[in-house]
Design a protein around this nucleic acid. Structure first.
Lengths: 133, 133
DNA sequence: CCTTGAGCTTCCAGTGACTGGAAGCCCTAT
DNA sequence: ATAGGGCTTCCAGTCACTGGAAGCTCAAGG
């Protein structure tokens, strides 16, 4: 398979596939013409990567997950540990975003959004304890 | 004020303050010795930026918000529009993260996390429809 | 007066995970 | 022979910093 077909079948763009080879996540062979020659296993790995990335795992996590996947002597505890750590990072991000959301939605609700300059959003950002508009 | 004092009082590190000057968010004067000389208004702007960044606004949003803040002919609708757009971006991110969280937590729960290699997390990533471990 | 150390300066490079674009080779069809 | 699309490499840009190196300035202590 050439890169275009693998891209279509894995859903990962050619640019990204080349990047993944660059950083050593995959090692496709080469045809005589210099084109990358992908086998089914490469495609499988790319699909794996696509799913792992879709779950928000970092590239480095993906690298480890992929090596565990290929390691028959792995212990599921190793995989679970990575996933749990990632899960708590996600929880942390969600909490941060919710806090932003909370403050911001109050400010948006309080803002008249009209032609006048008075604005509680700018009031808050400028450090006022309370503001109207 | 020198940069160190402004950093302490605004909570923004010197490196970041220099960066903000670099990209034109602030324009501190200079002392004869070449040091940046910050006035209260610069400090105020930096605090404004700190709060806006804490709410997750992008630097470009901050640039616009700051210019609106200084524009007495602004309309609060302009500010509100930016905030609403940002709010919906936050909602979008939260939704994405929640979806990841959902899938991931199920997988983590299903994984025994022991010394055996079988793992539903890797199963899912490798494309299996169901898996045990 | 000299030294020491902290604080300031600039500039360059790296982060994460791609993404865009340029220049140029390869392959197939007409 | 040519036109196009796909492939190659390499370089640069994204976002918002952050780290580090080399070097100047300043205040305090001896």
């Amino acid at each position: 398979m050439n890169i275009g077909e693998v891209a279509d079948r894995s859903g990962i763009p050619p640019k990204t596939i080349r990047y993944y080879e660059d950083i050593g996540l995959i090692r496709p062979q080469r045809s005589d013409n210099g084109y990358r020659a992908f086998r089914e296993t490469d495609l499988h790995k790319l699909a794996f990567l696509g799913r792992a990335r879709a779950l928000g795992f970092s590239i480095e996590d993906c690298r480890v997950l992929l090596s565990l996947y290929e390691d028959e002597t792995r212990e599921s505890a190793q995989v679970k540990a990575i996933a749990e750590e990632h899960l708590s990072a996600i929880d942390h991000k969600i909490a941060q975003l919710r806090e932003m959301r909370e403050t911001l939605s109050h400010l948006v609700d309080a803002c008249h959004g009209d032609h006048r300059p008075d604005c509680p959003i700018l009031g808050e950002l400028s450090g006022a304890l309370a503001s109207q508009g």
